[in-house]
């Protein structure tokens, strides 16, 4: 009649399913917490493991040397996240606008663009170095 009750009593004894990223309870001061992590005072609980390194779509990696400046990636980018630098004939990618569709990877004729498995990209400033690839 009430099948959930027995299920609940069973679950009560089990470990929580939640992945406790980055800490069990939200830290009071995130920046302070991250600073502690960098200094090695506290340990961060890792996020869920990346399942497949080949297929995962994370932050774009740009091979500057290979790039021939054909502008094809700019033509297909749905988010208009790629800018062309006229004088150098190279590109600049704004990760803040990127939607991680990896269409530019497919279209690139010289294989200069790749998706890495880096995905912790939160930043307070959208123009910070972390969020611009060139």
């Amino acid at each position: 009649m009430l099948p959930m009750l027995s299920q609940l009593l069973k679950q009560m004894m089990k470990k929580p399913f939640t992945n406790l990223f980055p800490a069990k309870y939200a830290p009071k001061n995130v920046r302070g917490y991250l600073k502690n992590v960098q200094e090695g005072k506290t340990k961060i609980i890792p996020p869920v493991g990346i399942p497949d390194e080949e297929t995962f779509r994370g932050k774009i990696v740009y091979d500057r040397e290979k790039c021939i400046g054909c502008k094809m990636c700019i033509r297909v980018c749905p988010a208009k996240a790629i800018e062309f630098k006229e004088e150098e004939k190279k590109i600049r990618i704004y990760i803040g606008r990127c939607i991680f569709c990896s269409q530019c990877n497919d279209v690139c004729p010289v294989d200069a663009l790749h998706m890495s498995n880096e995905f912790l990209l939160a930043d307070a400033n959208k123009a910070s170095e972390n969020l611009i690839v060139e």
Partner: peptide
Amino acid sequence: KIVARMQMRVGPP
């Protein structure tokens, strides 16, 4: 806390 554990969550302190 107990409700959270029943639902397999961590729950508040």
